[in-house]
């Protein structure tokens, strides 16, 4: 190595790591939230449960009527089973964007998509 160089090999390694890590850091902490990254699953009168949308998985959630099954796949989430009569929650289909919402009112379970930096504190409809 040229001993007169200002930049050492360690510098190059550190700067390379910094450059590589920057896009991830930006998306992780300062993303615009338009694509929801977390779903908030709430059973009425209980503490909400936060579920990441990057991991495909099925979650059984117990409500007063019985167990509703919620599926996460490719950054999306939906009800696939619920012990209610009209199945409106299942007909709501996939949720993936910030503030999208589906609920099984008879079983008192709701799903809301929330970005890490939610654009909205509350949704009017």
């Amino acid at each position: 190595m040229n001993k007169t160089s200002i930049v050492t090999r360690a510098d190059i390694i550190i700067i390379s790591i910094a450059i590589l890590i920057l896009p991830w850091l930006y998306l992780h902490f300062w993303g615009d939230g338009s694509q929801g990254e977390i779903a908030r699953i709430q059973v009425a009168n209980q503490t909400p449960r936060l579920i990441p949308l990057h991991r495909s998985q099925r979650y059984p959630i117990d409500g007063p009527l019985g167990t509703s099954i919620i599926e996460v796949q490719n950054g999306r989430i939906r009800f696939i089973e619920s012990p209610c009569r009209n199945k409106l929650c299942i007909h709501s289909g996939w949720l993936q964007r910030d503030a999208e919402f589906a609920a099984c009112l008879p079983n008192l379970i709701s799903i809301t998509i929330a970005g890490r930096n939610p654009r909205f504190d509350s949704i009017n409809f």
Binding site: I6, T8, I14, A18, F29
Partner: peptide, 27 residues
Amino acid sequence: MRKPSPLAIILIICLITGLISACSRSD
């Protein structure tokens, strides 16, 4: 391998500070 220069040390400090502030922002 030579030690990292002061420039690189400052960069590391900036990265760590940024990470902590971003974390505390969501917390």
